[in-house]
């Protein structure tokens, strides 16, 4: 029987609760209701004291988590949507992220951010916040793109001693399926070559991995182009060694992301590749991101706002033609 990306997130939380008495879940509507996306369905029945409904208070949710972590617990906080974590921004970047450096006492919390766009979700239920949190020292930011990674990286995140921002892509929740949760269990901090190639490298993460693979297939059929796709998996730390090694093979790089275009992960990738592997490049590095507007509501606008296999192909054709 096939399992989905959201099943992986639910199952990983169930396992974490079963295996580690320090783990507890806290978030809005996560108890009896099972969460807005059912990522915690049935878990409160099994662990009534460790699956706790929160008031609509994102700031207090993370403040609470920091205190609980200081007291030795490993809370997993569900933000109902990544967008609402902006209300908790202060607690995440100033309280959680600075605490270990300042005091020597670690704050092992996981903040789950249901991220990214889906048709019809509009400006406030579609955002990709990874770059914002990655900017701050003291955070780990992960962006699983596969069912197996969603599962293993959530369990690994719980075991890390730092605040982990776990960006789970809503578009993948039910669409992305697998036979089971098993994978290569690659650690957080390591990128993966999702598809190997020799003509150009696409460095991406989260849902865009799948769009990149689609684009690579189109270009292979079109002209025999072999596009390598690197899935960063975690954007912080960022596995630049795997990226540069790929660029060494292909000489060309497109950094692809669903987030807004100013700054961010794709800028970081390009700047590090330029700094560390400029001599490996046969063409100027390229970036492709969402458009520089809020994420629009209408499916027709939304579909054009984010990178698509077509826009990725177009970018790659230009990169290959240089």
């Amino acid at each position: 029987m096939a399992v989905t990306y959201i099943d992986a997130i639910r199952d990983a939380q169930e396992r974490a609760l079963a295996e580690n008495p320090k783990v507890f879940l806290y978030g809005q509507d996560i108890g009896k209701f099972g969460g807005a996306f059912k990522a915690t369905k049935g878990l409160q029945e099994q662990w009534p004291d460790r699956v706790i409904d929160a008031p609509i208070s994102e700031d207090a949710m993370i403040g609470m988590a920091v205190g609980a972590a200081i007291e030795g617990m490993r809370p997993i906080i569900e933000m109902q949507f990544a967008d609402f974590s902006s209300v908790a921004f202060n607690q995440i970047v100033n309280q959680a992220a600075t605490h270990y450096y300042r005091t020597g006492i670690p704050v092992p919390i996981v903040v789950r951010l249901p991220s990214g766009g889906t048709p019809g979700s509009g400006p406030f239920h579609s955002q990709s916040m990874e770059s914002i949190y990655a900017h701050y020292p003291g955070t780990v930011v992960v962006t699983p793109a596969t069912v197996a990674d969603a599962h293993s990286m959530l369990l690994q995140a719980v075991d890390l001693d730092d605040p982990v921002i776990y960006c789970e892509h809503k578009f993948l929740y039910r669409w992305l399926k697998s036979d089971n949760f098993e994978g290569d269990n690659l650690p957080i901090g390591k990128a993966r070559i999702t598809r190997s190639g020799k003509h150009a490298t696409v460095v991406t993460y989260s849902a865009m991995v799948h769009e990149a693979v689609r684009a690579a297939e189109i270009l292979y059929k079109e002209g025999g182009w072999e596009i390598e796709v690197v899935d960063l998996r975690s954007v912080k730390p960022l596995d630049i060694d795997t990226v540069v090694a790929s660029v060494a093979r292909t000489g060309r790089i497109l950094a692809l992301g669903e987030a807004f275009p100013w700054g961010g992960v794709t800028s970081e990738v390009v700047s590090r590749v330029c700094a560390e592997g400029f001599h490996l490049l046969d063409a100027p590095p390229m970036r492709l991101n969402a458009k520089d507007t809020p994420v629009p509501y209408h499916p027709k606008l939304w579909a054009m706002h984010r990178p698509t296999p077509e826009s990725i192909c177009e970018a790659l054709r230009n990169l290959l033609a240089y």
């Binding site: 205190g67 200081i70 007291e71 605490h99």
Partner: peptide
């Protein structure tokens, strides 16, 4: 003894979190 950040009011939920953790334990 918690170490304050400069952002006022932020410690209320933090202290609450320590207590909630003690309750769970």
């Amino acid at each position: 003894l918690l170490a304050m950040i400069s952002h006022l009011g932020a410690a209320v939920a933090q202290v609450g979190g320590v207590l909630l953790a003690k309750r769970i334990k």
